[in-house]
């Protein structure tokens, strides 16, 4: 196909950039023994790449099934639900109890609850006669607010010491990533990726809308349910590793659409993942080396990314 060449070029350039940023991150400012620095920074890199991947893929797939380019999974209350689960756990069994739990088991339970929530919400909203996207978004927002208020309520009445523990869990950064959790997350992402890859040809058809995709022989309800479950797993992974990152997915997804210049998900998805890696690792690099940890990663990403995004919008509008 004639439009493939520029996209493949773009992917290669982005891959080179991503590798460059990772190499920089691994080596810049390294003082001391390499056999300490490399595994230490390697863990950080691995968690950042996992999160970047999870956010990019989940946002693009979510936007494809919802036919909307300004929605992100967090609109559906996914990350609010994660906060609620964490809060209720601490509330119910206390921080000592939670720490005693196997983090892998806990993670599996969290993912299960989030997947159950998303498929329930979807079944309920889409099995009836109305299939309104606006209704879905509205219900998602309402659920998000409900979850946040419930969490807020519980956070106010728990022991202040417990609250500190909770806050620490909710705002986990890349500097305190649990090795076990990382391994489980990597496994979850790997399994999801295999399914995502096997369904690659369906996404382009789903993007054509419900009626056209049914006409082309896609079992629309089933596919959308599967995609939403995959999204739920990916959002759980990224939220469990670093906490909620909302604007980031929107930014990366829209940049990817602009750069890809084609509709094909087999181009858009890799471009989005590479962009996410560049933004996240690059942002962390700037955070650590330029601002000396004086600010939050999300501020760096959202400031720089927001400017790029605005520039793209203005360029797009004037074209």
């Amino acid at each position: 196909m004639r439009e493939n060449r520029p996209s493949i070029h773009g992917i290669l350039i982005l891959a080179a950039l991503a590798t460059g940023v990772i190499v920089l991150f691994m080596t810049v400012g390294a003082k001391g023994r390499w056999d300490f620095i490399l595994p230490f920074r390697g863990m950080k890199i691995l968690s950042m790449v996992l999160v970047a991947y999870a956010i990019a893929v989940s946002t693009i797939l979510f936007q494809t099934v919802s036919h909307n380019r300004i929605l992100t999974p967090s609109i559906m209350g996914f990350d609010a639900l994660y906060i609620l689960i964490q809060t209720s756990l601490i509330f119910a069994i206390g921080s000592a109890g939670v720490t005693a739990l196997d983090p892998r088991l806990l993670f599996a339970c969290e993912v299960a609850v989030m997947v159950a929530f998303s498929s329930l919400l979807y079944r309920w909203l889409f099995s009836g006669s109305s299939r309104s996207l606006h209704l879905l978004v509205l219900v998602g927002i309402v659920f998000g607010v409900l979850f946040r208020s419930l969490s807020g309520f519980m956070q106010r009445i728990i022991d202040p010491n417990e609250f500190v523990v909770l806050q620490d869990r909710l705002f986990a950064s890349f500097n305190t990533v649990d090795g076990d959790l990382l391994a489980v997350s990597a496994l979850a992402v790997l399994i999801v990726s295999i399914i995502v890859w096997r369904l690659m040809h369906v996404y382009d058809v789903l993007a054509l809308g419900r009626e056209t995709s049914i006409n082309l022989g896609v079992d629309h309800n089933r596919m959308v349910t599967i995609v939403l479950i995959l999204v739920a797993v990916l959002v759980s992974v990224s939220t469990a590793l670093v906490g909620p990152v909302t604007f980031f997915g929107l930014l990366v997804a829209n940049l990817a659409y602009q750069l890809a210049g084609t509709h094909g998900h087999r181009f858009v998805l890799p471009i989005a993942v590479l962009l996410a890696v560049i933004c996240l690792v690059g942002g962390q690099l700037i955070l650590e080396r330029v601002f000396a940890f004086d600010t939050a990663l999300s501020i760096v990403i959202e400031f720089a990314g927001g400017i790029v995004f605005l520039a793209l919008l203005i360029r797009g509008a004037s074209r």
Partner: peptide, 19 residues
């Protein structure tokens, strides 16, 4: 659905594509 898609096709009136 995919068996039927080789036998029967349908075109509705309002077709909007985001991509």
């Amino acid at each position: 659905s995919d068996v039927l898609a080789k036998r029967l096709s349908i075109l509705r009136q309002d077709n909007r594509v985001t991509s």
